[in-house]
Amino acid sequence: MNFTINGQSVEVEADIRSSLLDLLRNSLGFTGTKKGCDQGACGACTVLVDGERINSCLALAVQYQGRSITTVEGLGSDGALHPLQQAFVEHDGFQCGYCTPGQLCSAIGMAREIERNVPSVVTADLTAASVTVDETELRERMSGNLCRCGAYNGIIEAISETLAETSASQTPASSHERARA
């Protein structure tokens, strides 16, 4: 199977049953992506596929051949933290750190959805030309990522700050995605 992972082309032999998550963790050593339920109920396995957030545990790897996958390992650049990673540290957006890679990838995918004017269930006006970002919008949109340590407040603070600092023209995309763009 062939994939582009964090900007690098990889080829790997894998069991046809392998999820994208197990492929990343067990076959390719990208252990930053976490397994918390293996059934799409916790979001710890969230990765970006062509910029969209998905649950890699429910994704059969074979179905994603040829796609561009970004994991937590691909968020920063040249050893420097992505601004969102830095904000998570500053705002204590985690305790144990296990759900964190999924939260980060999810938040980056969410930023793109907001930029594309994808609504959420709490969006008051579905016909509005853009999403009005407030705390309720962010909380609903991040509800697919459980955090049992309860770092929810810090996560929202970190995302809010990063979104606010990112100009409208610039999505907080991962470095290699920025490089490609």
Partner: peptide, 16 residues
């Protein structure tokens, strides 16, 4: 003080 292990955790480098 921010968590000493924070950078490892946000980069997915903390090994479980």
């Amino acid at each position: 003080v921010s968590r000493i292990d924070g950078p490892l955790k946000v980069q997915g480098k903390a090994r479980f």
